[in-house]
Design a protein around this nucleic acid. Structure first.
Lengths: 226, 226, 226, 226
DNA sequence: GATGAATGAGGGTTCATTCAT
DNA sequence: AATGAATGAACCCTCATTCAT
C-alpha cells in the first residue's frame, strides 16, 4: 500500500490507504451501510457512491470493482464488530473492567451473566446483518471464509476460557479442557439466540434471552460442578 | 448448462406440450435449483425457465411473479427436506428401523449416534443451501419466517425427546424437562456443525463431526447421568 | 347464455355473426369499456377477455385479432352514441318530441336551447372517451375515418337545419343556406365545448356551457336576424 | 431502419462521445419524432434511443423515465409550434411583415386572409400530430392539461383581437367584446379545419380551406358589420 | 485523482397470438 | 365453438463498468 506519489503534506504519512483517505473511508462506510441493508447483489454501486457523496468512478478508482469493495466493507465491519467485543462488548460498557455479576460468588450466576453479554453483542443489529450477509455470500466469495469462521468471535471464547479456568482453580468447577467447553457454551447460546431471533431479524424478548442463558448455565454447571 | 439430457417430468413422452400440470413441477424444481445455487436476486427467471425447458411466460402464468415463485420453491424444498428427516433422515437409510447404536445399552453412545444423524441431515448439500438462502432473505421476505424458525426440524427434537424420556425411564439418565434439553443438544450440534462446515460450504471431515458429537454427548451425560 | 351444444333449434340461422351471439355481445361490451378506458395500445386482450368473462381464445375466435376487435368496438359504440342522439339526445328525454324552449317564440332562445343539448351529448363521458380514442388512432387505422368524420353527428346538424328553415319560413331569420350555417353553429359549439372541457376530461361548469351557448346564439342571430 | 446516414447532432465530428449537452437535444428531437409518430404507449424508449444515436441508458440519465421524457418532448414541441406562430406562422413567411390582404381595405377580406393563416398553422403536420397526441394522453397525464388548453395558441387570438379592434376603430365593424368574438372566430375555423382534415390526417384541399374561411368571414361580417 | 456522461448487457414483466383439448 | 396452457417478442428500467475531461 501507500502509493503517495508527490510531496503530500506530511503528518498523515504513515496511513496505508490509497488516495484521499477521507474519501476512501466515506466510501467504505457507505458500502457497509448499503451492503448490510441490501445484500451483495441488490446493493448498487450508484447508491453507494451517492451515499458516500462521491462520484461513482471514484469508487472504482479506490476499490477496483464491486467485489473488492464488498470484501473490504465486510472486513472493515468485521473489525469494527470485533473491536466492540474486545473493548467491552457494548460501547457503553466499554470501560467497565467486568460486568456486574460475572465475578460473583456463584459460578452459575457468572455464566448467566456472561451469556447475557454474548447475546447482547450477538444480536446487535449491525452484527446480525453482517452475519446474514456473510452467510449469504460465503458460498460465492471464498474470501469470506475467515469472516464466516469468526462467527463466534474469538474474544468471547477466550474470555470464557478465563472464567472457567478461574472457577476451576477456585475449586468451584472442574473443567479439564476449558477451550472445548467454552466453545460449546458459546455455540449453544449463539444457536439458540440466532434461532429465536430469526438471525437478528426480530428483537429477542428479554425473558427469552434470560431463559436461554439460565438453561445453558444450568446445563454446564450440572456437568462440571465439582 | 443442461441441454436436454436427464429427468424430463415423466409420463407422456411423445407430445412435448399440452396442459401438463407436470410443467409446474418442472418449473418448481428448476426454481429450487437456481435459487439454491444463485440466491434470490442473482437468480433470473429466464434461467429458471430455460432450466425447466419452459417459456418464461409459462413461469409467470404459473407463479405470478418472481417472489411468489421463490416462496413456492422454498416451501417445496423445505417440505422435501422435512420429508427426508421424517422418513429416516437420508434416503439410503430410510428403511432401517433404527440406526446402529442408538438403541445401544449406553446412553452416551446413543447420543453420539443421534448426533451423527443430526449432522448428516444438517449438512446435506441442499439443506445447507436452503438454510443459507432462507437466512439471506428472511429480512426481506417476511413469509420466510416460518422456514427460518424451522431451522432445526421439529422431528429431530421429537426424536431426541423420546430418547431422553426412554433413558430416564430406564433409570440411566434423569432428565426432568426433556424438551428443553433436547433443544439444547440439537442446538449445540447444529451450531458447531454449521460453524465448522462454514454453513455447509465446506465438507466436514469425519473426525470433526465425531468430535462434535462425542463432546456434546459427554457434556449432556455428565449433566444428566443419574 | 345458452351452451347447449348440438342440434341448435333453427330460427337464428340467418344471422351472419359468429358463434354464440351472446358471448359476442359480452366481448364487445367489454372491449368498448376497456378501449375507452385504456386506449388501443394499453388495452390488453387478456383484460377484455376477463372483463367479458370469456376465454381469451374465444375473443380470437370471434374477432380474429385485436385490431378487428377494436374496430368493431368503435363501430358499436359509435352506433350507440348516434342512437342516443337520434332518440332525443339523452336517454331520459328520449320520448319528448322537443326539448323545452326550442320551440319558443324567440329564435335566440331556441338556439341557446339547442346548444345546450349539443353540449350535453357532446360532453357525455363515453362519447368524449370515444372521441379521444378515435382521434388517437385515426392516423394508424384508416378504417376509423368515418368515425372521425362523424364527430358532429349528422343528426344534430339535421335537427338544426330544420330549426333554421323553420325560423326562416316564419320570417324571423333569413338563412339562405341552412346546411352550411347549421354546420358552423355546431362546429363553434363543439370546439368551444371540447376546448374548455379538455376534450371531456374535466367537467364543464354550467355557467361556462351557458356562456358558450349564449354567445353562439347571439352571433348567429346578429348575423341572420331579418 | 436508419443505419447511420443522416443528421448526427452536429458540431464535433471526430470524437463521437463526451459530455455533450447536445445529446440531450438529440434525444429530445428523437423523442418528439417517435412520440408524434407512434403515440405514447407504442413509442419505445429503445427506438428513441436508436433514433437519437444514443444508448438507452443515456436517455434515462437525462430524463429519468419515459413519462418525463414524454412531457419534455411535448413541452419542447409545443414551444416550437408556438414559436412558429409568433415568428410569422410558418418559417417561410416569417419575414413578411403582414400576409397579403390582411391589411386590405375590406374587413371581410382581412378575416379570410387571417383564416387562411390560422388553417395553415393549424394543419401543419407536426402541429396536428402534437394535437392528436395531447388529446390522446391528456386523460392519463394531467401535466398535459396546459398543452391541451393551449390548443388555439394565444397568439392567434391576440392577433385577431387587434384586427377586430382596428376595424372597429375604423368604423368598419362594431365589435364590443373583441376577445370573445375572436375566440369564436378561431374556434369555428379550428373545428371545421380539424374535422374536414380528420385532425390533420388528410390534406385539406385548397377549396375546402377557402370555403371554411370565406363562410366564417361572411358570418362574422354579417353579424358585426356596422 | 476526481468527475459526469456514456455504454452494453441483462432483469422482471406483459403482450398478442396459437396449440392441444 | 370454447378453453387453459404455452409461446416468443418486446418493453421499461437498472446495473457494473469505462471514457473523456
Amino acid at each position: 500500500m501507500r502509493t503517495d506519489s508527490a510531496p503530500r503534506p506530511r503528518g498523515a504519512v504513515g496511513r496505508p490507504a490509497g488516495p484521499q483517505p477521507a474519501k476512501r473511508q466515506a466510501i467504505l462506510e457507505a458500502a457497509v451501510a448499503v451492503f448490510l441493508r441490501e445484500g451483495y447483489t441488490r446493493a448498487s454501486v450508484d447508491v453507494i457512491a451517492d451515499e458516500a457523496q462521491v462520484s461513482k468512478q471514484t469508487v472504482y478508482n479506490h476499490f477496483g470493482d464491486k467485489q473488492r469493495l464488498f470484501l473490504a466493507a465486510v472486513e472493515g465491519e468485521r473489525e469494527r464488530v470485533a473491536a466492540r467485543f474486545t473493548s467491552g462488548l457494548t460501547p457503553e460498557l466499554a470501560d467497565e473492567p467486568k460486568n456486574e455479576g460475572e465475578g460473583a460468588a456463584d459460578a452459575e450466576t457468572a455464566l448467566v451473566s456472561f451469556g447475557h453479554r454474548v447475546l447482547q453483542v450477538l444480536l446487535d443489529e449491525r452484527a446480525s446483518a453482517l452475519r446474514r450477509l456473510v452467510i449469504s455470500e460465503v458460498a460465492r466469495h471464498p474470501s469470506l471464509r475467515p469472516a464466516c469462521a469468526d462467527g463466534e468471535p474469538q474474544q468471547l471464547v477466550t474470555h470464557l476460557v478465563d472464567l472457567l479456568t478461574d472457577r476451576t482453580a477456585r475449586g468451584e468447577l472442574s473443567v479439564d479442557d476449558p477451550a472445548t467447553v467454552a466453545r460449546q457454551f458459546v455455540a449453544l447460546l449463539v444457536q439458540q439466540g440466532l434461532h429465536q431471533s430469526m438471525y437478528g431479524t426480530r428483537p429477542l424478548p428479554g425473558h427469552e434471552a434470560a431463559a436461554i442463558c439460565e438453561r445453558a448455565a444450568d446445563l454446564f454447571v450440572r456437568a462440571y460442578r465439582r
